[in-house]
Computed example of a mutant assay.
Amino acid sequence: MAELIHYLHQEKEDNLSGVNHYGYEQAEKVCRFHSSFPEYTVTPLVRLENLAKIFGVKDIYVKDESYRFGLNAFKVLGGSYAIACELAKRLQLPVEELTYDKLMAPEVKQKLGELTFVTATDGNHGRGVAWTANRLQQRAIVLMPKGTELARLEAIKAFGAEAYITDVNYDDTVRMARKIAADCGGIIVQDTSWEGYEEVPLHIMQGYTTMGYEIVQQLQGVRPTHIFLQAGVGAMAGAVAAFFADYYKADKPIITIVEPEKADCIFKTAKADDGKLHNVTGALDSIMAGLCCGEPCSLAWDMLR
């Protein structure tokens, strides 16, 4: 019996070992890279006292990412860190040694040459990739699914990226981006994973842990009882859930994932509970355009599960 209990305990530890990829120590390294950019500031953790009174709870806090690098969205955290990891690989340097100033040094630019980063996006991820490529004097190609507002397209083009709206949905647009990257020798920077493509999504997810790292500093010892995270493919939700699971250990808060009813791939996968990912197909129309993703990120689901 003792051997059986040890086996089950060890199996559980092995299944959760991936959480360390998104834990506090890793997040501290990620945040150190982000903070090297001149535009970096810690985004506010806003206390909604009146809303808390309405719901009869002690406190409600909202992490306001509208201040992130002037881009009005958190997605740049993932794209920028993933690009940094790709550049570190080419420079044969640990990513912890990379800073914005070092990447802008003439000798580094000469060694790297011009690289092309390719991605598909509903808007904010692509804008983050385009912004980072622009700041680091590299090239970006961004594809957007049908139904994308022209304003989102123009916001990406403003950073010098090649950007196009396709005539297919988000998940098919991802497949188009993969082909373009292969054809032009570019680097696909996608915030979802598939078989054989997990390293870049891992780095993107790690990039999002800067938010968790900032939040625990801002809470100053206050432990939240509940955390609500929105999901498209689930990359941000998986990474931030893993961060808090690592930080609070056995005393972790209740974590709830929220997604559109018409793009509820995480919910369908959880409900089926059969060891498989479950996709949502069709138009995926919702007022939450940035969450209209029908195919879960396998790395994210591993964390959320």
Rank of each mutant, 00 (worst) to 15 (best):
A2E: 11
I5P: 00
H6V: 03
K12H: 13
N15C: 13
N15K: 15
G18R: 14
Y24C: 04
C31V: 04
H34F: 13
H34E: 08
T41G: 10
V42L: 09
V42W: 13
V42Y: 03
T43C: 07
T43F: 02
V46K: 10
V46N: 10
N50E: 10
L51K: 15
I54L: 14
K58M: 13
K58H: 13
Y61T: 08
K63Y: 06
D64K: 02
D64Q: 07
D64V: 03
Y67G: 05
Y67S: 05
L71K: 03
A73P: 06
A73Q: 00
G79Q: 00
L87E: 06
A88L: 14
R90P: 03
L91V: 04
L91H: 02
Q92E: 12
V95Y: 10
E97P: 07
E97H: 07
L98R: 03
Y100A: 04
P106V: 10
L115Q: 01
V118C: 14
A120Y: 00
T121H: 01
G126A: 01
G128N: 01
V129L: 05
A130C: 05
W131V: 13
R135T: 00
G147W: 01
G147P: 03
A151D: 07
R152V: 02
L153N: 01
L153Q: 13
G160E: 00
A161N: 14
E162F: 04
I165P: 03
D167S: 00
V168D: 01
D172P: 06
D172Y: 04
V174C: 09
A177V: 14
A177P: 12
R178N: 15
I188S: 11
T192Q: 14
S193M: 10
E195P: 06
G196P: 08
E198L: 07
H203K: 04
T209E: 08
T210F: 01
T210L: 06
G212Y: 05
V216W: 07
L219H: 09
R223D: 03
P224R: 14
L229F: 11
Q230Y: 10
A239E: 10
V240E: 10
F243V: 05
D246Y: 01
Y247I: 09
Y248Q: 09
K249A: 03
D251G: 07
I254G: 10
I255G: 12
I255A: 11
P260I: 02
A263E: 14
I266L: 15
K268Q: 15
K271Q: 12
D274L: 09
K276T: 09
N279K: 07
T281V: 12
L284R: 13
C292S: 12
C293W: 11
G294T: 15
G294P: 14
C297S: 15
L299V: 15
A300C: 13
W301S: 10
R305N: 14
